[in-house]
Design a protein around this nucleic acid. Sequence first.
DNA 1: AGAATTTTAGAAGAATATAGTCGAAAAAGC
DNA 2: GCTTTTTCGACTATATTCTTCTAAAATTCT
Lengths: 201, 201
Amino acid sequence: MIKEHILKKQKAIKYKIVGIASDVFSKFGFKKATMEDIAKAAGMGKSSIYYYFKSKEEIFEAVVKKEAATLSVELEKKVINVHDDPKEKIRNYVFIRMKYLKEMVNFYEALKNDYLANLAFTERIRKKYDREEQDTIKNILEEGVNQGIFKVNNTKFAAMALVTFLKGLEKTMIIDEEMDMDGLEKNLDDILHILFYGMIK
Amino acid sequence: MIKEHILKKQKAIKYKIVGIASDVFSKFGFKKATMEDIAKAAGMGKSSIYYYFKSKEEIFEAVVKKEAATLSVELEKKVINVHDDPKEKIRNYVFIRMKYLKEMVNFYEALKNDYLANLAFTERIRKKYDREEQDTIKNILEEGVNQGIFKVNNTKFAAMALVTFLKGLEKTMIIDEEMDMDGLEKNLDDILHILFYGMIK
DNA sequence: AGAATTTTAGAAGAATATAGTCGAAAAAGC
DNA sequence: GCTTTTTCGACTATATTCTTCTAAAATTCT
């Protein structure tokens, strides 16, 4: 039997490994990152890593989950639980999400090789967060409507539209290597400006 | 026999491949970059690359040579053939060289793995440029002395000292992964300031 | 057009690298 | 000191990767 406080220590070590693996994957991409790379970066033997995770994929999964959780927390703090006006909230939401995606692009580089095979795998992990995302946007929109700032008839549909747009950006970022990210980021405000000034009373 | 104008075309293609390989090595490092990566990036089959280069090392060698040549040209244009005062020239020299090193660090990443084995190989390629470098600095120093701006007794020794310092930085950049490059770059001016105001009459 | 030359692509071989396993030894906890 | 937890190094089977070879495609030359 595994004892209680031992489990906690294991979790802490796993957490540390995931953080380091995150750096390694971010630097090399999933395929080019080796267990040896991760082990060295963590300052331990390869087989010690296997003591905590049973495969490379399992580590990757943990990394993606952690990233998603980090995004959730950041959004929570900076968007959801803040008393800015809804307009500012949406702007923050979009920009934080963009920042997150930029960081994630390296992870998804793995997909560029074995595209279809891995897409399913990553999509599965993310699906859970899609609903959450849509609800968040919907809540912000409704808040804006209640405050008389937005004029949106169907907040659910509008939320879906915005999330779809953001997911579209994501796909573009992952697949279309030629896209000019910095240019896009600068244009985001214009896009949002258009969005807002077609929406604001 | 290979015909004259065909050779020119081959050279052009080789040049293109070297440029692309440069990007790939820069992104992945020598070891993680595969011939497949290079071939794909160049839009041709793997064996076509082997038609122009007989090994991965030969491509890498060509890349390093090209980089060194690029540095030479840039230094020529922005430092040697310019009528700035010698103080500014040295400052430009050091900063351009730093910029170059920063770009080169990725190539040298190969060395981090198989350090001693590859060091000899890269060192051989660079040796030719070391003398050139020392002469350039020496000339700038002498120019400064002639203009009565610098007080340097032995320009040859002083040039050697500066080059040694720059090479020291290089080694540090390659081997010591923990070094804070951005911080260093900011401090370079301070270092140069010290260098200058110990030297200027 | 057809022969000669140059270039590419694909398949296959040989060497290397990598993910993952196993048992034994070290470290930590009791 | 004995048990449990953790690390490590050696090992294997598999997959990758460098490189070679051959034949076909494209280009150039006559």
